[in-house]
Simulated assay, not measured.
Amino acid sequence: MVSQRNSLRPKTVSVLKMRTANKFMIRKATRFWSVCAVMLYRRTDSSLPIFSENGSFWTNSTTDLLAGASEEDLLGRTRNRCHDEGYESVALIPLRSGEEIIGLLQLNDRRRDCFTSEMIGYFEELGASIGIAVKRQRAEEEISRLAKFPDENPNPVLRVSGEGVVLYANQAAGPLLEVWGCQQGKSLTGQWHQLVTDVLAHGRSRQTELDCRDRVFSLTFAPIVGANYVNVYALDVTDGIRAREALRQAHGELERRVREVLHSHFRPEFLNRIDEVVVFHGLQKNHLRQIVDIQLERLRELLANREMTLELTDAAKDLLVEEGYDPAFGARPLKRTIQRLIEDPLS
């Protein structure tokens, strides 16, 4: 609820809406981009007085705003719908998750002059919190959906009891069971049985790879300690491994060509003074995961002085990597992401 001093009194008819990008349609017939489309597709211009630096749209008088619009613009029903319904003060706040805009928060009031730049700034902070929460909720819902329908999962999914018995295996898991020499209702043997035992004993997920015919699977053994069983999720990573090998060969070829160019341009006496030639390559996401651990350790040291501790789940670290990954700028966006999502809220 917004306080009365901010001019949005409870007795006033106000509207709070969320418009998501997948439900929005651009009216091409008018050849005019509505404000919603401009924001969702990040085409705002902060030099215009109706847009904030963070991409929000707001006006304290739709009447005055439309008075300066062309006849073609007025044909756009999306543009003047709020005005037609009697709203004068209108604000559209982006719901952000990192750089992604996942929806809009709309505030309407029938009176003029209800908004200030400070209020818009407050709602932008609120929109960022809502955006992150919505994105996380969607991810959790997707995980829950996959967990409820393992039969429909195109990847192998198995459930193994603490005694090593395969309690369940979907159709895609057939090739894995062949390699293990096992079937549903029977017990795993050897290293796989031992792996299930270890995962349950330590209560932590473990990952490993398995060669299966001409494919390679990445296996995640996730313990459900309270129920005394382990869920096994398999993902075909063959294409990724082949891509990494092709990349490794490409890097080797690049280094060979660099050496050839050096020898063709510089005299042997000069090259003899060079101890080593290093070819730097762009950071990949797996590298950023290691940098996340290094940055978090530094942050933990700072927090220790205040008698505070910090622990992040693997999912939280993955989120930091996803939000902070930019192959063009290396690890700097990651550092800013950690500051924005962790350090700033803590401070």
Rank of each mutant, 00 (worst) to 15 (best):
R81T: 11
G86Q: 02
T59F: 06
M18I: 13
T30Q: 08
K17H: 13
S46H: 12
S97Y: 05
M39L: 13
K11A: 13
L105P: 01
P10F: 11
E88M: 01
L105W: 08
S56F: 07
S70G: 12
S47Q: 13
L92Q: 02
G68E: 09
N60L: 03
F51D: 02
A91I: 01
E88I: 01
R96L: 01
V90M: 00
T30R: 07
F24Q: 08
K17I: 07
S52L: 06
K17F: 12
S89A: 02
T59E: 03
T59D: 04
L48V: 11
F32M: 11
E100K: 01
I50C: 15
N80V: 08
L48F: 11
S70A: 05
T78W: 07
V35F: 09
I93R: 00
C82F: 13
E88L: 00
K23M: 12
W33Q: 13
M39T: 09
R81F: 14
T12R: 08
R96N: 01
D64C: 06
I102K: 00
T30G: 10
K23W: 12
G98N: 02
T59S: 11
W33H: 09
R77M: 09
D84M: 06
D73Q: 12
E99C: 03
I26G: 05
W33A: 10
G76C: 10
D64Q: 14
E53H: 07
V15P: 00
R27M: 08
G68N: 12
V13F: 14
L40M: 15
S56P: 06
S61Y: 08
A37R: 10
S14F: 13
N60C: 05
V15G: 02
F51H: 10
L92M: 09
A91N: 04
L16K: 09
S56I: 04
S97G: 06
G86Y: 04
V38M: 14
Y41W: 15
D84T: 04
E72H: 06
P49Q: 08
E71I: 04
W33V: 07
K28E: 13
T59M: 05
A67M: 11
F51C: 07
R27P: 04
K17S: 13
N54R: 12
P10S: 12
R43K: 15
Y87W: 09
M18E: 06
R96G: 00
L92K: 02
D64L: 14
L105S: 03
S46I: 04
P49R: 05
L48Q: 14
L66K: 02
V35I: 10
S56M: 09
M18P: 00
I101R: 02
S34T: 09
P49C: 05
A91M: 11
L48R: 10
S47V: 05
A21M: 12
Y41S: 15
E99G: 05
P94E: 04
L95P: 00
M18D: 03
V15N: 03
R9Y: 08
N60M: 04
L104I: 05
K11V: 11
A21S: 14
C36V: 14
R79T: 00
M39G: 10
G76Y: 05
K23I: 13
V35S: 03
F51W: 14
E99T: 09
T62K: 03
T63D: 11
T63Q: 15
R9I: 05
T20K: 07
R42F: 13
T59H: 03
T20I: 12
E88W: 03
F57K: 02
S52T: 15
F57H: 07
F57D: 02
N22M: 06
L65R: 05
